[in-house]
Design a protein around this nucleic acid. Sequence first.
DNA 1: TGGTGATATCAGCTCCCAGTGATACGAGGG
DNA 2: CCCTCGTATCACTGGGAGCTGATATCACCA
Lengths: 93, 93
Amino acid sequence: MIRLLADPARAAIVEVLAAGPACTCHLVEDLRMTQPNISNHLRALRHAGVVTAEPHGRYTYYHLSADVLEAAAAHLAELAARARASAGERREC
Amino acid sequence: MIRLLADPARAAIVEVLAAGPACTCHLVEDLRMTQPNISNHLRALRHAGVVTAEPHGRYTYYHLSADVLEAAAAHLAELAARARASAGERREC
DNA sequence: TGGTGATATCAGCTCCCAGTGATACGAGGG
DNA sequence: CCCTCGTATCACTGGGAGCTGATATCACCA
């Protein structure tokens, strides 16, 4: 899941969607990217459950899934906690 | 920074280091990867501040920086919070 | 001080993936 | 109905990142 946010374009999409649901055309003109490109990234994010599509007339609105983002955040926080807890132990070679 | 954790090899390294500081040889035999490969990934993580190197005799011990992980976790959590707060707004086309 | 083992760096190759262009589909509007 | 617009999907290509093999460097030990 974190792998999806690695791409700058996908990170930018998520950033825009964090400000509120938007349709594909919004993303295209906000991010100055071509429409197939946006659509490809949205498909990847959709398959991972990061965003959900809501067809609305001939537009398609996308909105972020806060749950998935929070799960990823929790994973990182837990890694940090483990790192802190085990900072003193040193394995021998 | 999140981009670094996208690579499975780097994610595995971080996972091992979360269990406690380790030297390069530990990572090599734990992860069954070649030594130059590990070393390259460690360099990337080092430059990003995710890990710090502590030369210890002829070994080099690496340990995770919990601060950086927590900062990344906080960023994701803040994205999730923004997404939740603005879930109702809908821009018109 | 020569040898060994641990680590870092570099050049090269390969392969995956993001971006593009063309195209198909579906919904509205005239 | 046909035409337009928004969206999705599909081949293709170019660039970049990761893996490898070879080599350099440094620390320790006999």
